[in-house]
Structure formats: structure tokens, C-alpha cells
Design a protein around this nucleic acid. Sequence first.
DNA 1: AATTATTTAATTTTGCACAATTAAATTGTT
DNA 2: AACAATTTAATTGTGCAAAATTAAATAATT
Lengths: 142, 142
Amino acid sequence: MDELQLDHQLCFKLYALSRKVIAVYRPILEALDITYPQYLVLLVLWEVKSITVKELGVRLYLDSGTLTPLLKRLEQKGILSRQRDIEDERSVVITLKPAGRSLLQDAKKIPEALGNCISLGQSEYQQLKGRVDKLLTQLTTA
Amino acid sequence: MDELQLDHQLCFKLYALSRKVIAVYRPILEALDITYPQYLVLLVLWEVKSITVKELGVRLYLDSGTLTPLLKRLEQKGILSRQRDIEDERSVVITLKPAGRSLLQDAKKIPEALGNCISLGQSEYQQLKGRVDKLLTQLTTA
DNA sequence: AATTATTTAATTTTGCACAATTAAATTGTT
DNA sequence: AACAATTTAATTGTGCAAAATTAAATAATT
């Protein structure tokens, strides 16, 4: 078997699937007027309320080059605030504002809306997530 | 279980894994002085020699907005040529040039080099690819 | 305490992705 | 044949990603 055939490449399929799934999210998130990476930031903020750019980057595997402009856009919309940490002036602390908190209510419907578009059995879903998670862990801890 | 927890989201893990795997490719492809999406275009061209932008887009799930500038960069480097189809002037035919063909020799080492970075058992690899492929098919044919 | 090294975010630059629009060529229909 | 509808690339504009550099703050070392 030719490993250089496009059709045989796992990476291409991962890349394509990732984009396709995000494309399913797009119209749903458009109702909240946010992008998928912005949604990921909000997922974190709904959990922790307040976090440094550094720690946000660790969780999302993104750096300040990507996060700074993205966070500025969310700040502009009044969803969050960015301020230097008084304890350590190198850090910038991101804090969710009321407008960002209220988005959580709308977001609660998202997982179900997505499930309707992606009909994957429970066991298949868990199995795929498990395999993806394992490989991701392997690549990030190596 | 809270489906809005970042850690529980399959899509985030797919998105993160896709980027991580491409990051593994990056230093390898840097030796050929190409990016990952450019590598995907070459994978197709090594198979078919000549193809329209339209058909390339179908295979890679990309549109002309992404492909046109990418192809122009590869044209600039003498890797391929872009010319209007004489049969149908709407189409642009992409043809591999000798410089592009010679890259195939270097590329033959890539799958093995990648395998060394991503240690995944044969059955696990096939199973993951199978699940990814199934979901991808479902989302693209729906 | 002064110097050096490290950490953190921002900035700059390059290259995707993708939506929306435009323009030209072809096809389909009357 | 004339007109309308469709197809194909290119263009424009927005928003990620990621590498490289810069600048400021903190930590570590002498």
C-alpha cells in the first residue's frame, strides 16, 4: 500500500474532520456572534471565571500571538476584561464580564444542537474520543 | 456530566490533535520548504500529474479562496504550473513540473519519519482512522 | 545589591480558511 | 440565436495559527 496516497493518510483525515466539525458549529455559534476559537475561550471562562493568558494558552494549546488579538476582540464586545495582574505585572488576567456570563445560557443548547447534526452512537463517540485523547496526550507529553 | 466542559468536548480534542499532528509534520516538511496544506496538494499531484483547481478543492475540501494563493506560491517556486483549460476556459489546470516531481523522492521518507514520532499500534491506527473516516464521510455526504 | 537568566504578553510577518462578491465562460431554455 | 442560469477562479475582507522578535517584569545567581 502506498503511504503517500492522500486517501491513506490519517493526518489528512483528522485535519479534514476537524474543519468539518467546526463547520457544523459555525452556524450555531453565529447566533451568538462568536467564532469557534472564541467559543473555546468562553468554555474555559465559564469554568474558572478568571485566568491568565498564559494558563489559557496551556489549556487551548494556543500562544499569545493567537490569543491576544482574539481576546481583544472579545474585550471590544464587552464579553471579558483584560488587565495586568497586580501580583505579577508580566501576566494579564482575563475575567468574564456579565455579557459573557449571559452567553452561557444560550450555549447550553449547543451540545444538543450539535448532537443532532452528528449522529454518532454513544459507544462510538466515546471510543473515538478515547483514541483521539490518547494520541493527543502522547503528543503533548512527549 | 457537564457537556460544556472543555475537557469533555470531542471537537476540541479533534481540533487540538489535528494541529498537534501537523506540528509534527512541520519540521519534516520544512526540509522540503513547504507547508502542510502545500504538501496535501503535492500528494494529489503525485497521484494524478494534472488536475483542475475545482477537482483539487473537492479532494482537499478547500475552495479557490484558499487554493488560488497557495497554488500561486507553489507556481512561484517552479513546483507546478497554472493554466486555463483550453477545452473550458473557466477551469484552471494545475500541472506538476519537474521540480515538483523531484520532491517526491524526498517525501518518500516522510511517512516513516512521522511513524517514529507517533507511536501508534497498527490496529489502533487503523481503528482511529476508520472511526475518523466514517464520521468524515457522514458529514460530507449529509 | 548588581547582574544574568527566565518568564510573560504583545507585536510583526507569513500562510492558511472561509464567506461573500465579481467576472468570465459555459450550459440550459425559450 | 437570444436570454437566463450555472459553473469556475479570482478577489476582498476577517479571523485564526504559528514562528520570530521585542520589551518589561520577575526570579535566580553571583
